Simulated scan of single mutants.
Amino acid sequence: MNLDFHQVDAFSSQPFAGNPAMVYRLDAWLADELMQHIAAEHNLSETAFMVREGSRWHIRWFTPGAEVALCGHATLAAAKVLFELYDEPGQRIEFICKSGVLAVSREDELLVLDFPALSVQPLAVSLELEQALGVSVISAMLADKLLVVLDSEQSVRACNPDFAALARLPWSGVIITARGEAHDFVSRFFAPAIGVNEDPVTGSAHCSLIPYWAQRLKKSMLSAYQCSARGGELQCRLEGERVMIGGQARLVASGRLWLEPAGSER
């Protein structure tokens, strides 16, 4: 058995920017252990596997260390692969996953994720959190991930966490965010507990970021920038209980994973 893979830089129109994801379009599911080994082999923040089920695609995502329940950039990458390489018809693809039904639509040059909006609950700021991040925290909230508000974009960019200390905290991932200078808000995302010290651009983090900033700024359409080393632009909308997260994507590589014994297939 040998498998074709495709690498996409999500939330970027250019190669070597945005967030890289590996995508596998399968005819049937592989064993969970094998998918985890494949994700570890690629060693990107996320590898997406998908299998058609009726009119939808069932999608699963693996970091190098664990399966996750929701991933934005690898879903964007999967839609890019289906539209561009496998001639998926129409303007909208629906995915099913552990978090429910998701969709990606083509809107001009953008691919737009349709994801659930997640509300946040206030959380006391602990000394351990501030020490792990190495910055002063304005406030903290909890949804599926910890959301931490800092005082400025400069503080977000300068944050240099202690990843070992972050991994010991009781959350799978930590978002830091602040008002932006050229964008409505900026953010970064750290998840050392699941094998990703810093994710370059994190669509799923915006499920809580968009409702939070929409309420704070009294607007439903927002521009966002994730200011990791690679960086990524996101065009965001709050629509009731859903968030729309738009971005471009660039196919950068395709190849084949050889699982047969050496020399058995060429």
Rank of each mutant, 00 (worst) to 15 (best):
F190L: 05
V174Q: 13
M221T: 14
F189G: 00
G173K: 01
Y212Q: 08
G173N: 04
F190D: 01
D199N: 02
A205Q: 03
K219D: 04
Y212W: 14
H206N: 13
I175G: 02
Q215S: 15
T202E: 01
T202Y: 01
P170N: 09
W171D: 01
R179K: 14
G180P: 11
F190P: 00
E181I: 15
F189N: 00
S187L: 05
R168N: 15
D199M: 02
A182P: 00
L217H: 04
S187P: 02
F185G: 00
W171V: 15
L169V: 10
A191V: 07
G203W: 08
W171P: 08
P192F: 07
V201A: 06
I176D: 01
R216S: 13
A214P: 08
W213T: 04
V201S: 07
S172L: 15
W213S: 04
H206F: 06
D184C: 10
N197Q: 04
V201P: 09
P192Y: 06
A193Y: 10
R188L: 10
R216L: 15
A205R: 03
H183D: 13
I194E: 06
L222N: 07
S187H: 08
A182N: 13
L217R: 02
N197M: 04
A224E: 06
Y225E: 13
K218F: 11
W171H: 15
A193P: 03
R216E: 15
L169Q: 11
R188W: 06
R216A: 15
P170K: 05
F185D: 00
D184A: 09
H206V: 08
W171A: 08
P211G: 09
Y212F: 15
P192I: 04
S220Y: 00
A182Y: 11
D199L: 02
P170S: 09
A178N: 10
P192L: 05
D199Y: 07
S220V: 13
S187M: 09
S223Q: 07
H206T: 06
E198N: 01
S223V: 03
S208A: 14
L169T: 11
A214S: 15
T202M: 00
G180K: 08
I210L: 04
A178Q: 10
D199S: 02
K219A: 03
Q215P: 00
H183S: 13
P200M: 02
Y225D: 08
